[in-house]
Write a protein that binds this DNA or RNA. Structure first.
Length: 646
RNA sequence: GCCUGCGUAGCUCAGUAGGUAGAGCACUUCGUUGGUAACGAAGAGGUCACCGGUUCAAUCCCGGUCGUAGGCUCCA
């Protein structure tokens, strides 16, 4: 057989006998990075032990590359599974994929893992690593694979194989006594996996279905380099410090009370400042965008929600009804039905469209107890809600304007890590989860997709995440501990206008049905503020900060001067406090820093004499001396511009 | 809702082979009047989440409830 030519990326062409493996190439050819753990042949990731039969291009990768790292993570999941099987032989393995910087493996075990168990598993993993077991892959026929996994009593694996496509190539990976069904590829020996850490264990359902068996999921992380592992673990610690639940407590922004109920936040004066600022921002932008503001009740007769479809499609997220004079009343889970009522209250002409109305309407949703999460997931929420009623011709522009509005907001806050997601219906849920009208779904989804493409907005698509009444654009963000949330949303509703018999009189005098766009560019106060707390780590920009300025007299002797300054700044609308305790200046500064107050105004003998203030900004030691007027002018313009720096 | 862990002063946390509890910070008072991240002293504070059970005795052991954490599922 003739030789084959392999172009090694970064090295050059070499000839080999067919059947050569990347591992052999790595050992033979000088200059290939020693820490390569996997390779790509003509763009496909393959095991280092795979045989190469024809000329190709090969690229060796270490775990610094995203693909290399994901292989390492995946292989670490297998290593963990092997350790678990050694320690708890009755365990049945299921699946163990990699995520970004993490992996997990789901196990069916008799008793859930304790923290001690995780330590034991980790120790066993280190042991297997030092055994340096070769990881061998084999292609198996369907029958062979089923027979094998059946024999070793791994029924989940058998179930997986039975569900795979008939022409799927089945592979097993073996390391020592442990064999797993897997697509691979994997690193070539357990000795390659050295620097890992198990992070947590929790429950998960088999195949993500709550009707199925509860499995134990163990999360972990793994790196090639101990420094990278340390860095990642530090990063996780740092992220925990930004957790809005922690900062919310430290800065006294909001809290939950057992006697009030879970998921029902109480906003303190400081937290309420954040709400007020957001609301002022929304009001300003919406007024400029042609919205009219409205107000609607929190409680309503069931008939309205029956008409809107909520009782059919949304009941599981609604609080149980209360009986009022023999009639069922519900807390509102959304504001839309009221806005439709307002639209319909007076006759509309084509001249009234687009008709845009908005409010910060408080909604109440029954979220299952285990789903509650700080401010990010609550049961009472103040929604930056609004509805646009427009003609088909106006739709595209209106829809994109909403997208632009939330981009504008994001710019104000400096939010740049988000993902726009076009959420589509899942045909399987029609009639139950979604309104049953396949044609309208298709048309509306196409319209939205085209509008987005026309505006050159980047987005991903997600099937099954639509609202029950129409497709939507969700803006996804991540909390500091990595959970994903929808921050803003922009939704189309093709069903409601008809259900509510909403019409307008067109130019020709005929009655037409408008399109309806639901939108919540700032989401809800709860989630948006929860997100902002983490985004800023509690260090709010001046315009948003609950405590903008504090005056720190050097000693009691200057309290009167401080009081004058306080009065002046307060009259200008600045959120100001005065620390007149008999404490040393250093102590007052420390307390102000801990409270993350933006600006400290220090006054002592010098300032009283000069009629000035000494200004010290949060985290900045350098100070400057200013007159009261110069100072207030300076910060007022910073506030009015909603500047984000510091 | 499901699985597991956790619940001690306003906050962060000690503690008890079962004999009703302690620190630091914060708070109040007194002294100190101090120039850039903690001045000193004293005082006040708790049905040890709640309800039952076992026990002479429960904060501790057992059961239940509620809350909470990590996930799963679900969502703004």
């Amino acid at each position: 057989m003739s030789e084959i030519s392999i172009n090694i990326k970064g090295i050059g062409e070499h000839t080999f006998s067919p059947g050569i493996t990347p591992l052999e190439i790595k050992n033979q050819i000088k200059g290939i990075q020693k820490n390569s753990i996997i390779c790509k042949v003509d763009g496909d990731l393959i095991d280092l032990s795979s045989k190469i039969s024809k000329s190709c291009e090969i690229q060796f990768l270490d775990a610094q590359s995203k693909e290399g790292h994901s292989v390492l993570l995946h292989s670490t999941a297998h290593l963990m599974a092997q350790a678990v099987k050694r320690l708890f032989p009755k365990t049945k393995v299921t699946i163990g994929p990699y995520l970004e910087n993490r992996f997990y493996y789901d196990f069916d075990v008799e008793t859930p893992f304790t923290e001690d168990d995780l330590v034991k598993i980790e120790d066993e993993m280190l042991k297997i690593s030092s055994e340096d077991l070769e990881i061998i892959h084999e292609v198996k026929s369907r029958e062979e694979a089923i027979k094998y996994f059946d024999k070793i009593d791994e029924n989940y694996k058998v179930e997986i194989i039975n569900d795979l496509d008939k022409d799927e190539i089945l592979k097993t990976y073996s390391q020592g006594e442990f064999t797993d069904l897997c697509r691979g590829p994997h690193v070539h020996s357990t000795g390659e996996i050295k620097h890992f850490k198990l992070l947590s264990s929790s429950a998960a359902y088999w195949r993500g279905d709550e009707k199925n068996q509860t499995l134990q999921r163990v999360y972990g992380t793994s790196f090639q380099n101990p420094k990278d592992l340390k860095k990642y673990l530090n990063q996780l610690e740092e992220q925990k410090k930004r957790d809005h639940r922690k900062i919310g407590k430290e800065l006294d922004l909001f809290f939950f009370d057992d006697e009030v109920g879970p998921g029902l936040p109480l906003w303190t004066p400081s937290g309420t400042v954040l709400i007020d600022q957001l609301e002022a921002l929304a009001k300003e932008k919406e007024t400029a965008g042609g919205y009219l503001r409205v107000r609607t009740p929190h409680l309503t007769k069931g008939d309205l929600f029956s008409k809107s479809g909520h009782l059919d499609h949304y009941m599981s997220s609604m609080f149980s009804p209360m009986d009022v004079d023999g009639i069922d009343y519900y807390m509102k889970p959304m504001n839309c039905p009221y806005h439709h009522k307002i639209f319909a209250n007076t006759p509309k002409s084509y001249r009234d469209l687009p008709y845009r109305i908005s409010e910060y309407g408080t909604c109440y949703r029954y979220e299952k107890s285990g789903e509650l999460f700080g401010l990010m997931r609550v049961r009472s929420m103040q929604m930056n809600d609004g509805h646009i009623y427009c003609t088909a011709e106006q739709f595209k522009e209106e829809f994109i304007n909403v997208c632009n509005l939330y981009m504008e907001y994001f710019k104000i806050f400096g939010i740049d890590k988000y993902e726009m997601r076009l959420s589509l219906h899942d045909p399987k849920g029609l009639g139950d989860k979604f309104i049953n009208n396949p044609k309208l779904w298709k048309k509306t989804e196409d319209d939205v997709r085209n509008a987005l493409k026309g505006a050159k907005l980047k987005f991903v698509e997600s099937v099954g995440d639509a609202a029950f009444y129409g497709p939507k654009i969700d803006v996804q963000v991540w909390s500091s501990i990595g959970r994903e949330f929808t921050l803003a949303t922009n939704q189309v509703d093709f069903a409601i206008p008809e259900r509510f018999d909403l019409t307008y009189t067109d130019k020709d005098g005929s009655a037409k049905t408008p399109l309806c766009i639901h939108r919540a560019p700032l989401g809800t106060h709860e989630r948006f503020i929860g997100f902002l707390i983490e985004h800023f780590g509690g260090n709010f920009p001046l315009w948003l900060a609950p405590k903008q300025v504090t005056i720190l007299p050097v000693s009691d002797k200057f309290n009167d001067y401080a009081e004058e300054i306080k009065k002046d700044l307060m009259s200008k609308g600045i959120r100001i406090s005065l620390d007149n305790r008999s404490e040393k200046i250093g102590s007052k500064i420390r307390d102000a820093e801990m409270q993350k107050i933006n600006i400290m105004v220090i006054v002592g003998e010098k300032e009283v004499e000069n009629k000035t203030l000494t200004i010290r900004r949060r985290f900045i030691k350098e100070q400057k001396e200013l007159s009261l007027d110069d100072f207030s002018n300076e910060i007022l313009s910073e506030i009015n511009e909603r500047r984000v720096s510091n």
